[in-house]
Design a protein around this nucleic acid. Structure first.
Length: 623
RNA sequence: GCCUCGGUGGCUCAGGGGUAGAGCACUUGCCUUGUAAGCAAGGGGUCAUGGGUUCAAAUCCCAUCCGAGGCUCCA
């Protein structure tokens, strides 16, 4: 199906003469329609198998365009010449009539006669959206259509749920969410609006994009594919530290770390139906004899491990995790900085559970794992986050207590989306959303109860009675590590907007202590001091360049370095003045300084600074 | 994918049919520095790529690539 939509001041059309035998019988009269969207359309051979689906999809497209250009009137104009492979006239007429019927529910529709030579006059408005063409196709796979259609038909009911379990039904009027007093919950209001109204316009690029480059954390890579970032040494350090933290937390919780392949056989029977839901979103790789797709989560590899394992009821919950580099070929326009990528690292932790009761208990346990990750990277819980819970109605009806317990753990009102039917593989999920400087919501931590994939992959455990049973599967992630960095940078920008100095948590700061020598003659003894701090696992470096002290301080401040130390005559005697991030200056001895840092980074992972200690030998990655 | 805007020294950007500009960075020299930018000189760019128009293209046109924002989407 091909359409050409012209937003027009008017269309005047007059049937002249039948072009085909099967032309519609109509009255030959001139017709003029003012202020309308004229949709020239051509039904094609490839549409013949699924005329109803193509009609529905076309209606959706036309509705989108009509909404964009704000018009109430639509003219359907059969125009076979748009296509080189037109369908039979019979199908074409059937499809057009169906489109007419569907559109008429919401719009004033005029359909130009089919099968006639017509003369017409039209005035196109000429604004940027006034001329649009679309090619509409139905994927080859029936499953795809079914799943996508189910999604289109989904009905959501929205609520605010309070920690005491009280529900407030929400509705949306004139771009405002009503049904709950958001006075003390401004970010929750933004989140609800974001989800319900899909009002997502941003006036400019998000601030973290500039910061990630200025601090030499990450950057775009022209030599790759959009959304595949490069990480410079400082960024790789931060990312590595966060990943190590997450890994430790998962291990403490009792999950087993595994590593699974990043690409899988397209034709493997387990993946059918799961892949088809997202037909255009895979990176495809061709090996000499196979078509493969890059994983978009760790599910594939981990489920295949679990499928082949011998699992007893005594082994449940069976917990497994992986820091999985994952790939989703998102549409070009959906990518933004570190917020949404095509290649990202998804910490993915699955738990196989015997039954619903065990799954619920396990989810509450895992809730605490994610909480401690978010807190350790420097977020305030729950102040910096908004909880969204999505539940299939049937699950809600029998598990309200559990949902209440979940919201109570969050300790703040949450947004609840109720679905009338299950159309994903899960019956419930939650996510914690961060609202950024531009009021955009991004999901960080999430957990889901999967009731479908055990069947699909053939996952089984042996129960007490010797019977093979299908487990429930939980899918948890505290958030992609790139996205966690995005959140830290956006949060730092918010600090700056409030007039505070932006900063990273001490344990994530690439340089924790910067020593600025007053002049060249002090460099050598400063290095001795540095050796002592390094032994204490503190990341310290020396600005040994021939610059004024003022300039060295300024640059260190701009690098967000938490402790800055000028080193000259006085310090050589052992008396240190330390400049902190808040601008305060403190007199400290060397051991006091290192104790202080050890205290502030207690129980956090440590890695050495992956750069030369002296700045004069350090390359600049980004001006 | 579609719409809009952009791509000019390492970085940030100005300019714009007829010898290519600034600030920062870099190199060199002077200064020998005490808590947010010392002074001076110098080097460095086939103006994203490929076509086209023109006596002449970085500038205008087309295509492609890359980036940003929007639409849509986010398993």
């Amino acid at each position: 199906m091909k359409i050409l939509a012209l937003h027009s001041d008017f269309l005047e059309v007059e049937p002249k003469k039948k072009a085909i035998k099967t032309a519609e019988d109509i009255k030959k009269e001139k017709k003029r329609i003012e202020e309308c969207l004229v949709v020239f359309s051509s039904v094609e051979k490839s549409d013949e198998d699924q005329p109803d689906q193509i009609a529905e999809k076309t209606v959706q497209e036309i509705k989108n365009i009509a909404t964009q250009v704000k018009t109430e009137k639509i003219v359907l104009y059969p125009f076979v010449h748009l296509s080189s492979k037109p369908s039979s006239p019979g199908t074409a007429l059937k499809v057009l009539k169906k489109i007419d019927e569907l559109l008429s529910k919401n719009y004033q529709v005029y359909r130009a006669p089919f099968g006639w030579y017509k003369s017409f006059e039209l005035k196109c408005k000429g604004h940027p959206l006034s001329e649009l063409s679309r090619e509409i196709t139905i994927g080859e796979n029936q499953d795809t259509c079914k799943a996508l259609k189910a999604e289109e038909k989904i009905k959501s009911q929205w609520y605010i749920i309070e920690p005491n379990g009280e529900l407030h039904e929400l509705s949306i009027e004139n771009g405002k969410v009503t049904g709950f007093n958001f006075k003390k919950h401004k970010n929750l209001e933004k989140f609800a609006l974001y989800e319900m109204a899909k009002s997502r316009a941003a006036p400019k690029a998000p601030p973290h994009v500039q910061i990630m480059r200025k601090l030499e954390i990450a950057d775009y890579e022209e030599g790759g594919d959009p959304g595949n970032m490069r990480f410079y040494p400082k960024g790789k350090l931060i990312k590595g530290l966060i990943e190590e933290l997450i890994s430790t937390k998962f291990a403490e919780y009792g999950a087993m770390e595994v590593e699974t392949p990043i690409m899988y056989d397209y034709d493997h029977p387990c993946f059918h139906g799961y892949l088809d839901r997202f037909p255009a979103r895979q990176y495809v790789v061709h090996s000499p004899n196979k078509k493969l797709f890059m994983r978009f989560s760790a599910c594939f590899g981990q489920f295949l491990i679990a499928r082949d394992a011998t699992i007893s009821y005594k082994d449940l919950p069976f917990r497994m995790y992986e820091l999985a580099k994952s790939f989703r070929a998102e549409k070009r326009g959906e990518l933004t900085g570190l917020r949404r990528l095509r290649a990202f690292t998804m910490p993915d932790c699955h738990a196989l559970c015997a039954n619903e009761q065990q799954a619920k208990e396990e989810m509450l346990k895992r809730f605490q794992v994610s909480k401690s990750v978010e807190e350790d990277i420097g977020l305030n819980f729950p102040e910096d986050l908004e909880l969204g819970v999505r539940i299939v109605k049937k699950f809600m009806d029998t598990n309200k207590d559990f949902v209440d317990a979940l919201v109570k753990s969050f300790n703040k009102p949450a947004l609840l989306e109720l679905w009338d039917k299950q159309f994903f593989y899960f019956t419930m999920k939650y996510e914690w959303n961060f609202i950024d400087c531009l009021d955009k919501a991004s999901a960080l931590a999430t957990d889901q109860i999967d009731v479908e994939n055990a069947e699909r992959y053939g996952l089984e455990y042996t129960d007490k009675d010797g019977q093979k049973k299908k487990p429930l599967i939980l899918h948890q992630s505290p958030g992609a590590t790139e996205r966690l960095i995005y959140v830290l940078l956006e949060k730092a920008q918010m600090q700056q907007n409030k007039g505070l100095k932006p900063s990273l948590p001490l344990w994530l700061s690439p340089t924790q202590v910067r020593i600025c020598s007053v002049s060249q003659e002090f460099n050598e003894s400063a290095l001795k001091l540095i050796e002592q701090l390094k032994k204490q696992n503190i990341r310290v470096d020396l600005d040994d360049r021939e610059l004024t002290v003022g300039k060295k301080i300024r640059e260190a401040e701009q690098e967000w370095i938490p402790y800055i130390l000028v080193y000259g005559e006085k310090e050589q005697q052992g008396q240190l003045t330390v400049r902190e991030r808040n601008g305060e200056q403190k007199q400290l001895s060397l051991s006091e300084l290192s104790d202080r840092i050890k205290q502030q980074t207690k129980n956090k992972p440590f890695k050495q600074l992956p750069l030369p200690t002296i700045l004069s030998k350090r390359p600049i990655f980004l001006g």
